[in-house]
Design a protein around this nucleic acid. Structure first.
Length: 204
DNA sequence: CCGCGGATCTTCT
DNA sequence: GAAGATCCGCGGA
C-alpha cells in the first residue's frame, strides 16, 4: 500500500460538529508508524463527547491537566489513562476551546498484525486485537506520549487518520447509547458498523 | 456463557 | 474515600 493512499485527512475533517465526525470517521483508517513498524486498522466504532452540553464528557467540569488536549484545536489527539492502566484515544473536533472529541472504540486490523500481536500477546485472536478502546491503543502502541499530537501534519513516526483505499461508500451505520457511562446514558452518541465482528459490543 | 474482583491513576465529593 | 469513556482471569452454571 503506497504512502499516497495513507495521506492524513485535512483539519477541515475534524473542525465540524462532533456527531458528524463520529459518524464520518467510520471506515477511515487509523495509522501509527513507529520505530517498531507500521500498524493500522479500519475504524468500525466511535463515540461523540461534547463538553458544552454533555455531562459524560471529560471537559464538562472545565479544564484540568489531563483533559487539556481536548480543549485544544481540532485534528489533534486526546489520549488519557483509564482506570490507572489502559489508554484511550480521542480525535479532537469542533473548535479550540470547545473540548469536543471522538473516542475510537474499535478497529478492524489491516496492517502490522504480527506487531499488534507482539504488543498484545501472541495468543490473542485477530478479532480481539483492537476490540475496545484500551486494546486498540495497546495494539497500535498509542500511549500518553501521543496526547496532544497533531494528526494532520504528524511528526515522522507518529499517528494519523487516512482515507481507506477501496472502502465501500455505502456502508450502513448504526447508533446506540455510549458504553460504560452513567450520565446521559440514553443518548445515541455511539456509532458503529453493524455486523462487523471487530465492533466491541452489541447494543443492549 | 456470565458475573465478579483486582490492577492503579485522575478527578470529584 | 469513591468512581471512572477498561480489561483480564477466575470461578460457577
Amino acid at each position: 500500500m503506497p504512502d499516497n493512499d495513507l495521506a492524513p485527512l485535512p483539519r477541515d475533517f475534524y473542525a465540524r460538529p462532533t456527531l458528524v465526525v463520529a459518524r464520518d470517521v467510520l471506515g477511515k483508517t487509523l495509522v501509527h508508524r513507529s520505530a517498531e513498524g507500521l500498524t493500522a486498522g479500519i475504524i468500525v466504532e466511535a463515540e461523540a463527547y461534547v463538553s458544552a452540553i454533555d455531562p459524560a464528557a471529560h471537559g464538562y467540569r472545565g479544564l484540568t491537566a489531563r483533559v487539556r488536549s481536548m480543549f485544544g484545536p481540532p485534528g489533534h489527539a486526546y489520549v488519557y489513562r483509564s482506570h490507572g492502566i489502559h489508554f484511550c484515544l480521542n480525535l479532537v473536533t469542533e473548535r479550540e476551546g470547545e473540548a469536543a472529541a471522538v473516542l475510537l472504540r474499535a478497529l478492524q486490523p489491516t496492517e502490522g498484525i504480527a506487531l499488534m500481536r507482539a504488543r498484545r500477546g501472541e495468543r490473542i485472536a485477530d478479532r480481539d486485537l483492537c476490540r475496545g478502546p484500551g486494546r486498540l491503543c495497546q495494539a497500535l502502541g498509542v500511549t500518553l506520549m501521543h496526547d496532544g499530537a497533531d494528526l494532520v501534519t504528524p511528526d515522522p513516526g507518529s499517528l494519523w487518520v487516512a482515507q481507506t483505499p477501496n472502502f465501500a461508500l455505502e456502508t450502513p451505520i448504526a447508533t446506540s447509547p455510549r458504553i460504560g457511562i452513567s450520565r446521559a446514558a440514553d443518548w445515541l452518541w455511539r456509532f458503529y458498523i453493524p455486523g462487523n465482528p471487530y465492533v466491541s459490543a452489541r447494543p443492549a
